[in-house]
């Protein structure tokens, strides 16, 4: 029996009368990598933001290890420490060096000692190939480097699950790979991740499960990503995936 880590039950999210997420449910097992794809504006990012309560929900519940994630709850800071998140735009703190960015939360939030936090930060930075840039400021780094640093900043909190919100969407093409390789190595190491992406090849390579999401609902779900990307069942998913495929377009 696999252990369910994240459980989303019938959540509802609306801005006024505009429903963004409609009765959405999902269970993510420990060690599982779930990739969410879908057209822009379909509510994928909003979904991730609901999971760590950056957005409030109008109905349903989100449980991490059986504990509810609730925006106004007293334990929200504790819960968020267990949910790592990396955003699309480079969201490092511009007034702090890379190392300071990474150790800020461990020291201030988790009350760890500076030497211990810095030691782990350097270890993690070494893994993503940024150890020599630890004293640089975010503005001195390329987009890909900043995004790798942002991943380290999330990792050092030892989150149970990592939410990646289109982390390569704002990057130059040649920097996409260096970031995705970091994510691939995390998946290999057994991290639980929920990934929103437009990189289909990457999604195919990393996903244990794929969700095709549109208008706040799951249109198609597949535990066989290879199968999904080559032979999607629904017409809508087929049409969506086709927009990424130039060869078939020309051959047909």
């Amino acid at each position: 029996m696999e252990q369910v880590l994240l459980e989303i039950n019938h959540i509802q999210k609306a801005y006024g009368t505009h429903v963004v997420i409609d009765d959405f449910s999902l269970a993510v097992n420990k060690g599982e990598v779930v990739v969410i794809i879908g057209p822009s504006g379909c509510g994928k990012s909003t979904l991730l933001r609901c999971i760590n309560a950056l957005e409030d929900i109008q109905g349903g519940e989100i449980l991490l290890n059986g504990e509810e994630v609730l925006k106004e709850a007293k334990n929200i800071s504790k819960m968020r420490q267990k949910i790592g998140m990396v955003f699309q735009s480079y969201d490092l703190f511009p007034h702090k060096t890379i190392l300071e960015n990474i150790v800020l939360a461990p020291i201030k939030v988790q009350k760890r000692t500076r030497p211990e936090a810095e030691k782990e930060a350097v270890e993690l930075l070494t893994k993503v190939g940024l150890a020599d840039r630890k004293d640089a400021y975010p503005r001195q780094l390329s987009g890909g480097q900043k995004q790798r640093a942002a991943i380290v900043r999330a990792l050092i909190m030892h989150p149970k699950i990592l939410l990646l919100d289109e982390i390569t969407a704002a990057l130059d093409p040649e920097m996409v790979r260096e970031v995705l390789e970091v994510v691939l190595s995390l998946a290999k190491a057994g991290s639980t991740m929920l990934i929103v992406t437009h990189e289909m090849a990457f999604a195919k390579a990393i996903a244990d499960r794929v969700l095709f999401f549109e208008h706040g609902k799951i249109v198609e779900e597949s535990s066989h990503p290879k199968e999904f990307f080559t032979h999607p069942v629904t017409e809508r998913a087929r049409a969506f995936l086709k927009t990424f495929d130039y060869e078939t377009e020309q051959n047909s």
Binding site: N52, R80, Q81, Q110, A154
Partner: peptide, 9 residues
């Protein structure tokens, strides 16, 4: 938001 996501109050 990124500070919130790190669990900061």
């Amino acid at each position: 938001e990124s500070a919130q996501a790190l669990g900061m109050t």
